[in-house]
Nucleic acid binder design. Structure first.
Length: 225
DNA sequence: GGCCAGGACACCA
DNA sequence: TGGTGTCATGGC
């Protein structure tokens, strides 16, 4: 269909423009796949800089492993997570995740992620505190599964460029992206990293927006703010 | 001092 | 399904 080809074309132009202006993003910023999963939970509605502090606390206390997180008392864990905000909520969610990992996969995230994509995704979504974005971040960035991570920046940028409504659901945005892009984990990885970079750097205000490399890339008109 | 940041969930209509 | 309040720290 013409419309689908147009959407595909615009999505690819958006990607090309961002990549050529900003370069590869080398996501996810973590040393291990387990650290990716922990970071995905800690970054919920939180600036990444604050997540880094919490992860540094975990590393400093030698808590960044499935075994250590299973053992550590709740209060001690919450204290370590304090800089990332919502620390009691996140301590509870991390504990729920770890509990699931041990009861179903012997504490092995690798084993859990080795299952087929629909199986792992449903399993992750069944854990309290793991919603669609957190699940998909773990699937893509820790498991290398071909799934697109939708976040606030994705919604903001694609709606400002008139590809979706600002109120589009997570599933609708994800379907749009995945139906119009090759099913390639490396592409999904880079694309989402670029959207976050663009969002952080250029979407905060009109003056910054004016300097965005994507400014007039789509449809030849400026984005809606 | 207010606003926002790489959400998820309970509760309600 | 869709809207709203809650959870909390830290930077600007």
């Amino acid at each position: 269909m013409f419309q689908r080809r147009a959407v595909r074309h615009r999505l690819l132009r958006l990607y090309d423009a961002a990549l050529s202006a900003l370069g590869p993003q080398h996501w996810w910023p973590a040393e291990t796949q387990f650290e990716v999963a922990v970071g995905a939970i800690l970054t919920q509605n939180t600036a990444w800089i604050n997540v880094e502090r919490a992860i540094a606390n975990l590393k400093g206390a030698r808590l960044l492993s499935p075994a250590a997180l299973a053992r550590v008392p709740f209060g001690e864990l919450a204290r370590a997570l304090r800089p990332s905000g919502y620390f009691r909520v996140k301590a509870r969610r991390l504990k729920a995740f770890i509990q699931h990992l041990w009861s179903h996969h012997g504490g092995s995230l690798r084993r859990m992620l080795a299952q087929p994509l629909p199986t792992v995704r449903a399993e992750l979504l069944g854990i309290s505190g793991v919603g669609p974005e957190t699940a998909d971040s773990i699937l893509l960035y820790a498991g290398n599964h071909p799934i697109f991570v939708v976040d606030a920046y994705t919604r903001r940028i694609l709606s400002r460029h008139r590809l979706v409504s600002p109120k589009a659901s997570y599933e609708k945005l994800q379907r749009l992206l995945m139906a119009n892009l090759p099913s390639d984990p490396a592409l999904f990885n880079e694309y989402h990293g670029l959207l976050v970079h663009v969002g952080k750097e250029f979407c905060r205000s009109r003056p910054r927006c004016e300097t965005c490399p994507l400014k007039f890339d789509l449809q030849g008109r400026p984005p809606k703010l």
